[in-house]
Design a protein around this nucleic acid. Structure first.
Length: 118
DNA sequence: CACCTGACTGAAT
DNA sequence: AATTCAGCCAGGT
């Protein structure tokens, strides 16, 4: 069962468009927790049960595919990103700054919070 | 019920 | 400049 926090994370991650990525920190900040980026990553781990969450588009702040090992231990995550036009070399996203998709600039925080308060 | 761990990050030393 | 520490939250042991 995903807690409220997890739900927020999933919802945001689902909004990430193809060819774009974001970081745990960005999501955490968007949710207002700021320093709970860890929990975001933890949520991703739990999200494996939910295929609608494109966890492969979420990387750490350096653009490194830290969670690729959790994608079946293969290059699946890397391959998925490449399929979306993202350059990945040795688990690191190239042109990372170009691919970054900051939820703060594309989503409305208030909308998310109110939606989850119900 | 208390302690440990984890796909992170930024500040401090 | 590099390494360590602490903070955050949930879930497992």
């Amino acid at each position: 069962m995903a807690s409220e926090f997890f739900d927020k994370v999933y919802k945001v991650v689902r909004q990430i468009p193809e060819g774009r990525v974001t970081t745990y920190g960005h999501i955490a900040r968007f949710l207002g927790t700021g320093r709970s980026a860890r929990v975001v990553g933890y949520a991703m781990n739990a999200s494996h049960n939910d295929a609608s969450v494109p966890a492969h588009r979420v990387v750490n702040r350096k653009g490194v595919l830290t969670g690729k090992h959790f994608f079946g231990g293969s290059t699946l995550m890397e391959d998925l990103l490449k399929s979306e036009g993202i350059l990945v070399v040795e688990d690191q996203i190239q042109n990372f700054e170009q691919c970054i998709w900051d939820p703060m600039e594309h989503l409305d925080q208030a909308a998310y919070f109110t939606d989850l308060i119900e």
